[in-house]
Amino acid sequence: MNAPTQTALEQAIAQLIIDTLNLEDLQASDIPPAQPLFGEGLGLDSVDALELALALQKRYGIRVESDAKNAREHFATVANLAAYVASQQGAGDGAH
């Protein structure tokens, strides 16, 4: 079965994950958009989630509140993260 192709944003986020979390020997294409990032999937943990939230804030200027109910869902996969980033960017920069 072929892995679904990544959108440009998904590829950028996969690369951000690799660079931020220092995942040696991985390329963006090695993280399929639908693969779970945490636990049994890629194997990230809660410290990675904090680091990733910081990287998203620096790169895309979006804030992910740690107590947000749907934070877990936003962070579940590269595809979810890309959708969340796109929706926040679409919402405009003047939200805060």
């Binding site: 410290v47 680091e51 910081l54 804030q57 620096k58």
Partner: peptide, 10 residues
């Protein structure tokens, strides 16, 4: 004035 990396800090 950047936020600190949790990993670096910890």
């Amino acid at each position: 004035e950047q936020p600190l990396s949790p990993t670096q800090f910890g």
